[in-house]
Design a protein around this nucleic acid. Structure first.
Length: 641
RNA sequence: GCCAGCUUAGCUCAGUCGGCAGAGCAGGUGAUUUGUAAUCACCAGGUCGUCGGUUCAAAUCCGACAGCUGGCUCCA
């Protein structure tokens, strides 16, 4: 038998070793005592009997996936034991846990979880082996009699592939595997939530019930996972948005429509100021365009043909239909067309913080992250064939400089290439895709290729960032568009005096300001860095006697462009500090008789606590250097013409 | 849109079997003049999401609607 990987007990006092064999068969053998991966280095050779086992690094993830998958099966077994007439669908491992989809007349609620978990625990302690059984298609169909979804899944299995079942106690499931040796190797699990999910994710299919759970290598690791979920809950931008008085939504106005409160609006203004300054420095010009446009415009652009479902219904004015804009591009193209363009004018980089409205299904709306009205940090670049490579590279570098400014360091890229049905010449696709690829390589960005995943109108690169707790968010998209230039017939006059079709690139760096704000709130947990904090400094007079001095200090700070308030409340210092701390204000300046006498203030930082006394001037100097984005203007190729 | 759950004071939440609507925080007033994460007292605050139904009686039971929350192709 060829040994590819040896999978061992993952530091959880498991006994058997597993061997991945030729066909992913699972062979168990008794271990020589207990040993853990922590003490066994990758590449180490262990002798545990007649065979030599070589430990590989990927073992760990491989096995966790297997644990998750097996736990899903155990959950399904528990469900079939506790409920009648259960139709099973699938139960895969996911990135951090597992789920299983069921169809049954009973409606699951979280109250069912404790019973299910108890039943699962019984199955685990019963130490039931997972047995792989291969069958012919006919045998399998017989075994799955009455299981409508399973039978469909069976039909999906290509001819010639082995058809396998995994049996665990009296529960047997059509499954590719692999699985654990026995249920007793499932260490610690918990059921988390129940939700509807369409069979195969298709809206016209029946709605199944999905139960999600997590499983970890030890009770302690499970607790760590639960703590992480709790941490995410604490950072929830909807919760922080209310607590910190940043934004709200109102039933009276309508779902998915955001109201920015003064503090949220201040942060937005700071983001926008930074955004504009960087764009001017990077050779962009700004545009402002209308919110509505006539139906003819949207017919030409193709939106009425392809995008109408996502558009708000038209309004009729002077017997003509107007639509609220779901995108800014048709307007930018109008400006392009407002005069004859020469190759000498290109590239044109036009950016707009353009507010658009899109109809999103009621069920998908989510805080600031999925809304119906939002402001895109949109831009369109019109350029020649010769320019595309530089332009793409500049754009990617520009995006990276933004991520850095907002404290995102971990970036991943995705390249989506030509789908089967596409418009635009083969040559354009090849060139555009190559320029995207080249730019990614030039920036040293690792990327995943989504073969055929591009839109019909052009290839694209999406950039995602990881926030401080490891969640990935897509922010930027850089998309070629071979469609709009055709539809609006835009051209430039080349050196040869002939009309040429320019390349058009759509790009958004932050995506939507609303969504980006939501991500930022969660990323910083509401504790914004000094340059973004809506209130940077709060002065805390110790008693009423210091209020006047505090106001003077505030004036001084304000004239140094700091955002400052004075807490004139009657509460004691401890309470004032507590409030400022809960509002996540970066600096508290304490002003008592001592400070008033000495002409100083006592500095308390949100993170570092008591910093001692400083003169107001010294404090301003210190804070001024801190109150800038973590990365400045982008360095790179000179701005264009 | 679909499935499930939820909706009580500005916020967080109690409210038992259908029988007078509650607390803490926030807010207002007064007292206190305070030294690095909560001073005390009093006051005010409600069409129990909306509309309809059952009932002598509904926050509570039933229905519709609205909003919110978790999800809706990480393959057998």
């Amino acid at each position: 038998m060829h040994l590819r990987h040896v999978v061992c007990g993952i530091d959880m006092n498991l006994t058997p070793c597993y061997i991945y064999g030729h066909f992913c068969h699972v062979v168990t053998r008794p271990a020589r005592g207990k040993w853990s991966l922590a003490s066994a280095k990758a590449g180490a050779t262990l002798k545990t009997g007649p065979a030599k086992f070589v430990l590989q690094k990927e073992i760990f993830t491989l096995d966790l996936e297997r644990v998750r998958h097996s736990t899903a099966h155990v959950m399904a077994a528990a469900v079939t034991r506790l409920f009648e007439n259960v139709q099973l669908d699938i139960g895969p491992a996911t990135g951090d846990g597992f789920y299983y989809d069921f169809d049954l007349s009973h409606r699951f609620t979280p109250e069912d979880f404790s019973h299910l978990e108890a039943e699962m625990a019984r199955l685990v302690s019963a130490n039931l082996p997972f047995e792989r059984v291969e069958m012919t298609r006919v045998e399998a169909a017989l075994a799955l009699k009455g299981q409508r979804y399973k039978l469909e899944r069976l039909a999906d299995i290509p001819e010639g592939e082995p058809i396998s079942f995994y049996r665990c106690g009296d529960f047997s499931d059509l499954c590719r595997g692999p699985h654990l040796g026995s249920t007793s190797e499932i260490p610690a699990f918990k059921l988390l939530s129940v939700a509807g999910s369409y069979y195969r994710g298709i809206e016209t299919n029946p709605m199944l019930q999905r139960i999600y759970g997590i499983v970890a290598e030890s009770a302690q690791a499970l607790q760590t996972q639960l703590d992480r979920l709790e941490e995410a809950r604490k950072r929830d931008h909807r919760k922080l948005g209310r607590e910190l008085d940043l934004f709200s939504m109102h039933e009276e106005v309508g779902p998915g429509l955001i109201h920015w409160h003064p503090k949220g609006a201040r942060i937005r203004a700071l983001i926008e100021d930074f955004w504009r300054r960087e764009h001017f420095r990077a050779g962009y010009e700004l545009l402002y365009t209308p919110h509505i446009g006539r139906s003819l415009l949207w017919e030409t652009s193709g939106h009425l043909g392809f995008y109408r479902e996502s558009m708000y219904a038209p309004m009729v004015i002077d017997e003509l239909q107007y639509f609220l804009k779901p995108m800014n591009c048709p307007f930018h193209i109008q400006i392009y067309k407002s005069q004859l363009r020469s190759y000498r004018d290109l590239p044109l980089r036009w950016a707009e913080l353009g507010t658009v409205y899109r109809y999103e299904k009621a069920g998908v709306l989510h805080g600031l992250l999925r809304v119906r009205g939002f402001t895109q940090d949109d831009a369109h670049i019109f350029c020649t064939t010769e320019q595309i490579e530089t332009e793409v590279q500049r754009t990617i570098r520009f995006a990276l400089s933004f991520f850095k400014a907002f404290g995102f360091a971990d970036i991943s890229a995705y390249l989506a290439t030509r789908p089967a049905k596409a418009i635009g010449s083969e040559e354009r696709w090849t060139q555009a895709t190559a320029s995207l690829e080249k730019a990614l390589n030039a920036e040293g960005l690792a990327y995943t290729v989504d073969e055929g995943g591009g839109a019909f109108y052009g290839p694209k690169v999406d950039l995602k960032v990881k926030d401080v707790i490891g969640r990935e968010w897509q922010l930027s998209t850089i998309q070629f568009d071979f469609n709009m230039p055709e539809r609006f017939d835009i051209t430039y006059v080349g050196e040869d005096g002939q009309a040429h079709r320019p390349y058009m690139v759509h790009r958004a760096l932050l995506g939507s300001l609303e969504r980006f704000f939501g991500i930022l709130i969660e990323h910083y947990g509401g504790a914004f860095p000094l340059w973004l904090a809506p209130e940077q400094v709060r002065i805390l007079p110790l008693t009423d006697k210091q209020i006047e001095t505090a106001r003077q200090v505030a004036e001084t700070l304000r004239s140094a462009d700091l955002r400052v308030t004075v807490d004139t409340g009657a509460s004691k210092l401890g309470a004032k500090i507590r409030n400022a701390q809960l509002e996540k204000i970066p600096y508290m300046l304490i002003l008592g008789p001592k400070e008033a006498e000495a002409g100083t203030i006592s500095v308390r930082s949100r993170v570092g606590g008591d910093q001692g006394a400083l003169s107001v001037e010294a404090f301003i100097q210190q804070v001024k250097t801190e109150a800038v984005p973590s990365a400045g203007t982008m360095k790179g190729p000179e701005p264009g013409p």
